[in-house]
Design a protein around this nucleic acid. Structure first.
Lengths: 152, 152
DNA sequence: GGAAGATGATTAACATGTTAAGTGTTTTTG
DNA sequence: CAAAAACACTTAACATGTTAATCATCTTCC
């Protein structure tokens, strides 16, 4: 079998961890987790957004997002209200306090990202991202066959 | 600020999720999580291994590994005993039952990996892994500066 | 228009990620 | 050699990942 530590999932996991390790201390200094930061960042790009769409954008599962939104709302970093047309849906937006927090974290975050880009090379980084997108795209329709025993 | 969904961390996260989504159903059919599988796989490459070294190999934090080893030991998939020379250390090995489980999962796992390789291209996959390793390597010594306010 | 089904969101339950604290053991060092 | 420091591992506490179940609302369809 393939040398385990050289498998694609492990390579991706280690690379991502190497990157995130750079950002976590700064986020932590501002009382934010990586996922909370993703949500706030996603909210800055829109006026309002529905929860389901936010989950897709921030790449979080529904249950995780539910919990985090509850906390962010309690900390008054985001605002939430139910849609008028459809009482099932909730629309979320970032608050003034949330925006201020973003502005406080952004400079450090940008500096770290710039340093990563400098070390790896902007062109190479772009190539890497293209390959990652192609990989994701290539597997998009591969779900179907749950190829295994013990299946109903 | 950079379009959030195109950031490197998000690209890595999405790519990894696209890959792991292929494997999870099969592992699940055998009652294994991704992390448990990593540990068993790492154990097949050695006779015995100390816990700290296993954490490094399987890329898990100590506390996670502690919990998982407790469960795997209870399920008799691994064996553990304290080292004679140093009572602090524990050495872990995979059991016969664990090996049998590996053998049951491996064919499906290999088939999935082969399909991913086929779709993306073996050469391209190799290039991607090289880039990921270079990225990881390039950031290895970048920790130092916790560049941010609110720091002691 | 009302029951059945679909949909958006939350809750539940369990596993892992993450940091800090705790517990023995071993090594260092004065 | 005994106290202090270092070390290997575990436990604790809280946040998120993951799947299943639940709840309320909305849509379909007879």
């Amino acid at each position: 079998m393939r040398e385990f530590s050289r498998s694609l999932p492990m390579s991706l996991l280690r690379a991502r961890e190497a990157v995130m390790r750079q950002f976590r201390p700064s986020l932590r200094n501002h009382g934010l987790t990586e996922q909370q930061w993703r949500i706030l960042r996603a909210l800055t790009a829109v006026e309002t957004i529905e929860v389901t769409e936010l989950a897709r954008t921030a790449f979080l599962l529904g249950p995780s997002l539910s919990r985090i939104l509850r906390d962010l709302e309690a900390r008054q970093l985001v605002e939430r209200k139910t849609a008028e047309a459809d009482q099932r849906r909730a629309v979320v937006s970032i608050s003034a306090k949330g925006l201020k927090l973003i502005e406080a974290v952004a400079p450090t975050s940008e500096a770290i990202y710039a340093e990563i880009t400098r070390r790896f090379g902007a062109r190479r980084l772009s190539e890497l991202q293209d390959m990652l997108a192609a990989l994701e795209q290539g597997l998009a329709d591969m779900e179907g066959a749950d190829r295994d025993d013990g299946e109903e």
